[in-house]
Amino acid sequence: MSTNDVAIRVEGACKTYKRIGRSHAHMAVDGVSLKVERGTIHGLLGPNGAGKTTTLKMLIGLVRPTAGTFEMLGEDSTSPKGRRSLGFLPEQPYFPQHLTALQALRFYGRLGGVLKDEIDGRSNEVLAKVGLRGEECTELSKFSRGMLQRLGIAQAIIGRPEIVVLDEPASGLDPVGQRDVRSLMLELRERGTTVLLSSHQLSEVEAVCDRVTILNFGKVAAEGHIDELLNVSGQTSFKVRGLPEFPRAVSELASDVAVSGSVWVFSVEDSAVRAVVDAIDDAGGTVMSVTPKRESLEDYFARLITLAGLEVAS
């Protein structure tokens, strides 16, 4: 990756918060480094309180870093000039209540550099894109939580920024809204936009992210492609239908067996895949899917937290 291809670079980010009544300060972010390639979607994953929001806020200059450098397209992103090509969705966004959706977008769009002649067209375009068509003249005080989230996304992309930073874009959205956001991110990438998003939902991240950085207790716990991080090596996951009962031959090989209705889900060693498929055929079942076994993000986080706990204890 040459420096020209790096859209976002964070180096050694630290943030300590002083806590009243405590002897030592609290390290919310502790030496986080991050590189996001141009035109890719990068996920920032981690459990609650891991430091995702704090990292993003430092990147955007909303919080003063204790240490670290923050760059977007080679410029210091904590200064206004460095944010020229940025669109940002804050966590649980909130806007002046008395404005209508259209008025709010006019305001944020103009602040983000959209020209006066273009602002109305652009506002309507992004409102349609986030599924708020027909709500142009609704006052924001009458917006639901999910509608505010959508408006937040709209104001982030209205200036057609080269970089979009989204803090938990799916929060507060219904399943359809979550799917819309995923396709919106893919569309942005298609246009060459770089997307950095934070999340604690695997489904949101695995479907779209090229790479992820996992944070835990303010530190980078892992970085890479989501498959590399979460696939359990040597294990294959099965989904099977139409078995009157679980075949003896399979149950000896299978682990993590779960059943729901007539569908069985279980995993086996990679080497046993052939034998298991045959056994299921013989028993009259239908194999619905055979995929590499993937750890759930919940398990992964739980493991990270236990590991960190062990380190502290030792």
């Binding site: 955007i60 909303l62 940002f88």
Partner: peptide, 14 residues
């Protein structure tokens, strides 16, 4: 307090 300031200051506004 209502964090309406975030969306403003995340733009190119000093």
């Amino acid at each position: 307090e209502r964090r309406t300031v975030y969306a403003v200051l995340a733009k190119q506004v000093s």
